[in-house]
Design a protein around this nucleic acid. Structure first.
Length: 239
DNA sequence: GCAAAGATTTGCT
DNA sequence: GCAAATCTTTGCC
């Protein structure tokens, strides 16, 4: 029987919270029914000192949710196109969050495919039948493990938008929420490495191994065609 | 008020 | 392997 994700597990140092989130379930309830998946890849963004974190400029309109209580969704738009889901961590006034980078679909896979296809139509100003058909065909041929294997794809598959910014993910009745990992999955092997897409950040932040993933999970994207080897990466510090 | 860049993904070469 | 798509946010004038 599923249990809600305890807020206390997020009211801690962000790398500890990130580790707790690996294996947890991301759950969406809406008209399409129940969608659920296993969180398999995350990144930690930790406070104003972290020069890769959105909080590095202090509180702004976009990032204000990060300054609030843990267990709340921080959803922002990246590159003008893609929504990204974060889980706020640490106590109030300590701006930090965990970016959900990849989810392995478990329930509601047809709804995820539909949502992935719909995203093209939604993003296209002029409704283009041929373009939409191509996208539907492409998505229908993807393995389930590829449906949410990227931060923008997680939001597409689970129909998460900035309307979900500030939503409480620890409330069991929430239409978008977290559920605890089954006990049998609590001790899976974890790998870590540098965060993606933050080349603008100065050292040491650029190289901090604050990306965590479940070793060998098929839904974790293989960046650069290089296979993730557990022995080839360093341990995250401050865990 | 405006220029620049970004926690991405896709398709074409 | 690279560039396009696309728009919010920030920072500086």
């Amino acid at each position: 029987v599923p249990s809600p994700f305890p807020r206390d597990l997020l009211n801690v140092q962000t790398l500890t919270a990130a580790r707790q989130l690996l294996g947890a379930r991301l759950v969406r309830h809406d008209r399409s029914g129940r969608r659920a998946g296993r969180i398999v890849e995350v990144e930690a963004y930790i406070g104003q000192d972290d020069l890769a974190c959105h909080a590095r400029f202090g509180r702004t309109g976009r990032n204000s949710v990060m300054f609030g209580p843990p267990g709340v969704a921080y959803v922002y738009l990246v590159y003008g196109m893609y929504d990204c889901l974060n889980v706020v961590t640490e106590p109030i006034d300590q701006p930090a969050a965990v970016l959900i980078r990849a989810v392995e679909p478990i329930e509601g896979i047809p709804a995820m495919r539909q949502a992935r296809s719909d995203r093209i139509a939604g993003a296209t100003k002029t409704w283009d039948e041929a373009r939409r058909r191509r996208e539907t065909n492409r998505v229908s041929n993807l393995p389930a493990t590829a449906l949410a294997s990227g931060p923008g794809l997680v939001c597409a598959a689970f129909a998460i938008t900035r309307a979900d910014d500030g939503r409480d993910l620890c409330a069991f009745e929430s239409p978008l929420r977290l559920e605890r990992a089954p006990e049998a999955e609590l001790d899976v092997p974890i790998s870590s490495g540098p965060r993606v897409g933050i080349a603008y950040a100065a050292e040491p932040w650029r190289s901090k191994p604050w990306r965590l993933w479940i070793s060998g999970n098929p839904a974790v994207p293989r960046r650069g065609g290089v296979r993730h080897l557990a022995g080839a990466v360093s341990e995250p510090d401050r865990l």
